[in-house]
Each structure stands twice: as structure tokens, then as C-alpha cells.
Amino acid sequence: MKITEENYELYLFQYAEGMLSDKERREVEAFLDSHPDMREEFALYDPKLTVAGLPKMKYEDKAALKHNTFALWPVLRYAAAVLLLAAVVAFFLLRNGESTKPNTPVVAENQIDNTTTQPLQDSMQDIETSEQPQTATTPAHQAAQHANKQQIARKATPISESHAENAATPSTPLLAETHEPKQIIDTQIVTKEQPLQENTSDITFIPDNKKVTYTEELISYINTPSNPKKRSEQSPTQFVFTVFGDMLEKTDIYKDLAASVETLQRKTRPGIEKISAYIKL
């Protein structure tokens, strides 16, 4: 270290406080020897002089400095956080509820599909009299039900009227030589995208004189009510065997047709489309 006139106070202080090593102490003493005025000044320094005995003082108005332990603001913050969380939860619940609402129209749509395989009047009555809590409680379902009724009402148009309309169109229904089966097909399977009347000339394994009969039987079977008590006692496989078994030489077609009929009885659209495709064969 180098003691100068600029930094000597620090070293004198540390010397007086006993903070220096022996070597440093000797350096300080050498500095004081060479600076008598500073030695004289340093002689006045009293490390034991303390102001610790100064009178204690009291700040009177402590209460004004304090804050209430029960602060309203943190409570409000927590309350706001809880409300916000509840709102978020409610939002997602409602959102999920709305996302599941389309299921209701699906149910109704299935019911509409049922009407394609059941007598139309019966379907109308079934929907009106059916008591399904989950579909009767929500306004959305009521709206969907109303739409179903309208759709069913359109389908429930008298067959002759429906047939007249279809007859006026260029797309003539399947089996044009007979009226009754054609009317039934129009009312039951006419909603399919692929017309049924196409490629009738491609039918090779069904005799022409039996095409109408088989179609009638098939549609009659499909139209049996879904109620197991009213359904034909024949299983789809038995039915297909009974009607087509003596003509279907290809086993895979036979099984596919039976599966399609069974599927159709479960009121699924793919089943309808499949059976429609086989009818066209």
C-alpha cells in the first residue's frame, strides 16, 4: 500500500481501529513521522468517542403507519380469481354442451332414417309419442324435432302424389312396368344419391318375372318395424337365403347381401346404400 495525503485518513482510521497488519502499521507510523501536522491531527482522533449514548426517541404516531391485517383487496383478488375460474369452466361446459347438441339432431335423423324403413305414418306417430328425456328437454332438440316433423311430413305425402311428382321427373323409378313396387321404392329409397333404375338390364341371376316379387319381399322385410316383437321372425341371413338363396351362387355376394340387410335393419345409411346397390344388380 502507499499512503498519500489523499488517502491517509482511511489508513489512520484503520490504524486506530486495529484493522492493519504489523507491516501496514509500520508504514502508517512512518507516514506520520514524515507528516507532523497529520500526527497532530491524528492525536485528536478518539476511537472511543461514541454517540451511542444519545437519547432514545419515540415515534408517536405508529398507528398511522400501520395497515390493517385484514386487507380487503387480497380477498377481492381471490374472489375475482375464483369467479374467473368458474366462468372459464362454465364456458367450456356450455361449449361442450353445444358441441354435443348436434347429437340430438343425429338421433332425430336416425329416426328419420327409421321412417325410410318403416311405414311413414307409424314413424310420425312414434316420434310424436316417443318420450326420450334427453331430446325433449332442450330447446335445440325441440327445434330439431320440429324440423324432423316437417321432414317426415314431407315424406308422408300420399304415395300417389309422391309418385306423380316422381313420374313427372325424367328419372323414372326402377321397375317401371309395375306401379305398386315402384311407389314403395320411391317413398323408401328414393333419397339415395344413386338412382335405382339404372342398369336393370344387367340383372342376370334374377329372372325378370321374379324381380318385382323379390324386390317387394325385400322392401317388405326392411319395412318391418324395428320393434323386435313386430319384426319378422326371420333373421336377415334367413331372409336372404329364403329369397335369394337358390339364385345366389356366389357365396360372398350372399353374405354381403345378408350383412347389408342386417345393417339396414339397424337403420344405418350404409346398409341402405348397400342393399340399394344389390337391388340394382
Partner: peptide, 14 residues
């Protein structure tokens, strides 16, 4: 701090 303390005590004594 040490320098100011040195000066303070010196001034007090003076």
C-alpha cells in the same frame, strides 16, 4: 464509510 467515520469522530473531538 471509514473515511467519513474518521472525519466525524475527529470533528466531534475538535
Amino acid at each position: 464509510v471509514q473515511v467519513y467515520l474518521y472525519r466525524a469522530r475527529l470533528n466531534m473531538r475538535k
